[in-house]
Design a protein around this nucleic acid. Structure first.
Lengths: 132, 132
DNA sequence: CAATTCATGTAATAACATTACGTGATGTAT
DNA sequence: ATACATCACGTAATGTTATTACATGAATTG
């Protein structure tokens, strides 16, 4: 689809996130990339900034962490808000999209004259595997 | 309603948040309470922890900041998830509750066997006053 | 009264994020 | 081709947010 040309650092950071089961903090990413020449947090933050911009990565506000986008193939997610269910036991994150929620929040903002720029929806809890 | 007995520190922190127009970070609260004997971040974080527990204060994950609950009188908000619209220009925060969104997210989690503990919904953007 | 709980205080440290400054590579208009 | 702008990158320092560790006194309870 998009096929943005990523720089070396951006590629390294995206690869680390893609291979990870769970979200990673910027400093964890840094540690994982020391062998590839990363020395300072800024190298990670700069790559993340671009990846977020490209929609290849999401930031989880309630964890101060980052995940690779799970739906790169779906055009559905390029517009609309993405929600996350975050398991506090195993760390696994499910990314999903819900048009009803989206529409409902948009209805609220329209009603108030509020112009949304970015919406965060994060559900913390226990996943099916961990609460059984 | 609830009328929990707050300690001195909890009262001080809640008062500061209640009087503030915009959300405050823990360190800003600390600065505002220096005159009242506050010396260390932990004093603030401990008070906030309890106030969050009592439902008197909310944490805004996308800002690493805290606001007094706007709906202390409504029993409606003791159950269910609260959403926030945060103006990135003036800092003003609107707290609201939407049963449809709530139900929809609950439907998703039930379907997945996910047991939610806490849900964050934060809409960043420009309020009516700031985008006109 | 001993034991427990809990709010508090202080210090140190950990975790997360940004600012400031400089360099080299690439692209573009003159 | 040179001057100029832009951009990715590197390094260092600093700023901001949050927690851990340890100690004390007051209130509660058995």
């Amino acid at each position: 689809m998009s096929a943005v040309n990523l720089t070396k650092n951006q590629t390294l950071v995206l690869d680390v996130l893609t291979k990870s089961e769970a979200p990673l903090s910027a400093y964890t990413i840094l540690d994982k990339l020391r062998d590839h020449g990363f020395r300072a947090p800024l190298q990670v933050y700069r790559a993340l900034e671009k990846l977020l911009e490209f929609g290849l990565v999401h930031r989880l506000e309630s964890l101060n962490s980052f995940v690779a986008c799970a739906h790169r193939e779906h055009s559905c997610c390029s517009h609309g808000t993405v929600a996350f269910a975050i398991c506090e036991s195993c760390g696994q994150v499910s990314e999903f999209h819900d048009h009803v929620v989206d529409d409902q929040l948009n209805a609220w903002t329209r009603g108030k004259g509020f112009k949304p720029s970015k919406t965060t929806i994060e559900i913390r809890g226990l996943c099916a595997a961990c609460n059984s």
